[in-house]
Design a binder for these strands. Structure first.
Length: 221
DNA sequence: AAGCCGAACAACCGCAAAGGG
DNA sequence: CCCCTTTGCGGTTGTTCGGCT
């Protein structure tokens, strides 16, 4: 196998896997550039830190699920990709045991074809998923001026208030959603659902929101 | 049997962000 | 701040393998 700058490249052998696993068990995950130094005196695992990290994260880490993707997972990936575009790490984050590389490969080799999306169209779809700046600004303006009116008042008083009222469960989920949405909207690099709202066994986007909320997101009040 | 081809997946690369001294 | 190291991400390439001719 090729060697460059003294580092080996190409597929990993079982022996190399063993050495890397041993390193991770003994020294913990991270500081992958030290693997070569710390194992050299025994056998010399001549892999760069990047290669070690990738091998561990995508293959050797015990939490990695290497089974075939299930129908449920396929469905979730398709829905998430529709929302997020090629944000593989975000998508993988919603799939327990799956890595971004796995999801990316699975999408490119199976799901994209299954859906009949060609390479060029995929690029357009991926790049169009960012929340436009104007939408973010409109959202923030609307939220500032209308949040009080949007939320039901527990005392039946419909007056807008700057304080968050105490709400029943379904209203609390609306607030939770709006909070996370506002956070997301304020962060140019982030996307829908910072935490916990979309994942296996959770409701999909449409189920989570009623149409009014969707209209609110995109059109304001 | 041999060669070719494409699907599937593993691994690499470049870049950027984060973290620490 | 600055610089260097480490980590994370997404695009791309490389390798293997099975099916087809």
């Amino acid at each position: 196998m090729k060697q460059e700058n003294g580092y080996k490249k190409g597929f990993w052998t079982k022996e190399e896997d063993k050495i890397l696993t041993g390193y991770a068990r003994k020294h913990g995950e991270g500081r992958w550039n030290r693997v070569t130094k710390m194992t050299d005196f025994v056998v010399g695992l001549r892999r760069c830190g990047k290669s070690c990290r990738l091998r561990w994260i995508n293959y050797l880490c015990p939490s990695v699920n290497r089974d075939d993707f299930s129908e449920e997972e396929d469905d979730l990936i398709i829905r998430l990709h529709n929302l997020l575009g090629n944000r593989w790490s975000l998508i993988a984050g919603r799939l327990p045991g799956r890595t971004d590389n796995q999801v990316k490969n699975h999408w490119n080799t199976r799901l994209r074809k299954k859906l009949g999306i060609n390479k060029e169209e995929n690029k357009v779809r991926a790049s169009s998923r960012a929340i436009p700046k104007t939408v973010r600004e409109n959202f923030n303006n609307s939220l500032q001026t209308n949040l009080g009116a949007l939320l039901p008042n527990p005392n039946g008083n419909q007056e807008a208030t700057n304080q968050k009222p105490v709400l029943e469960n379904d209203s609390m989920s609306t607030i939770r959603f709006l909070d996370s949405l506002q956070m997301t909207m304020n962060d140019e690099s982030s996307f829908w659902f910072p935490d916990g709202d979309l994942g296996l066994n959770n409701p999909n986007f449409e189920e989570l929101l009623d149409q009014n909320a969707l209209d609110f997101v995109w059109n304001g009040f």
